[in-house]
């Protein structure tokens, strides 16, 4: 990855074959020792639990018997879990698309401002992203509160009837998405703003000389230059959104009637609260194939980007 270039250090230049070998050996030993804590964290707290989860998911409820893919079969047969799959996908895809569009729009607008004002506006727009999401969701929960929704109060000024934010399944789904977009859009904005600043000004000048309109500049200069960072950010956010837990937990806790559960909150419900650890593990493992595919594309994007820079 990033060390691809830096590691191509010419080693054969130093004199003395035997001492060089010893040196290299010593260096790799030191390097290994330095990375040992990292390897311990990755191996012991990520790789090993991931493998353990697969084993767990194939046990029966009391973890006394191996039942193969039984848990996965039961889950796929249940209506509730099929709704969880639908809700997770719907939630992640909708939220990420909205975050990407709003983030792109805001970054573009910020980019137009003179440099001095930019910082102030950027700071204000980043506030949602700074507050731990579990806590800011409490605020949203209070704003959605059915008997006393302050959002409904504002809507009433414009003669909009009261919205049952968390009471009705589709509104509850939309509420969860709203909070997630509110929390995540600033991150996209920051990423896109950095990418926008890295587009060379000459390209726009050249486009202007060729008589390009604002739309054409966006379509043929900005987007191609930002393609890679856009795809990395979107894919990355897809993973994070897909695996989201805190917003659903605080806002709806899966309700009404288990219709807003996503994989993470359902796994929590089944595995920790209801005490069926193997089935909970099976629920969270359903995320794995989707995440693996996304991770593959992220890695490809990052690799390609690194190569472009070399």
């Amino acid at each position: 990855m990033a060390d691809g270039a830096t590691l191509a250090m010419p080693r054969a230049e130093a004199p003395g074959g035997a001492s060089l070998k010893r040196f290299a050996r010593r260096r790799s030993t030191i390097a290994f020792l330095m990375t040992l804590p990292l390897i311990a964290v990755i191996g012991g707290l990520v790789a090993w639990p991931a493998g353990y989860a697969i084993w767990l998911s194939m046990l029966n409820r009391r973890m006394t018997q191996f039942i193969g893919l039984g848990n996965f079969e039961i889950l796929l047969d249940s209506e509730t879990f099929r709704m969880v799959i639908f809700q997770s996908v719907f939630f992640a895809v909708t939220a990420v698309i909205l975050k990407a569009l709003i983030g792109f729009w805001l970054a573009h607008m910020l980019h137009h401002l003179p440099a001095k004002g930019q910082k102030k506006w950027r700071g204000m727009l980043l506030v949602p992203w700074v507050i731990p999401p579990a806590l800011s969701t409490l605020g949203w929960w209070w704003m959605f509160e059915p008997t006393y929704s302050s959002i409904n109060w504002v809507l009433a000024i414009f003669a909009v009837p009261a919205v049952p934010w968390l009471g009705e399944p589709w509104w509850a789904r939309i509420s969860v998405i709203i909070v997630n977009v509110w929390y995540g859009a600033p991150f996209f904005m920051i990423m896109y703003l950095a990418a926008l600043k890295s587009v060379p000004e000459q390209l726009y000048e050249a486009a202007a000389i060729d008589g390009a309109t604002g739309w054409q500049k966006l379509r043929y200069v900005t987007l191609p230059m930002m393609r890679n960072i856009i795809s990395i950010t979107v894919l990355f956010s897809l993973i994070v959104t897909f695996a989201n837990y805190d917003i659903v937990r605080v806002l709806t806790n899966g309700g009404p009637r288990d219709l807003t559960h996503v994989f993470a909150s359902y796994a929590f419900q089944v595995g920790v609260l209801a005490g069926n650890i193997p089935r909970g593990a099976a629920v969270s493992l359903f995320m794995f194939p989707i995440l693996a595919v996304i991770a593959f594309f992220v890695l490809r994007g990052v690799n390609r980007r690194t190569k472009e820079e070399l």
């Binding site: 991931a50 993973i239 796994a267 595995g271 909970g280 969270s284 995440l291």
Partner: peptide, 8 residues
């Protein structure tokens, strides 16, 4: 993500 690992 942490939500994949918390059960194991």
């Amino acid at each position: 993500p942490d939500t994949l690992l918390f059960i194991p």
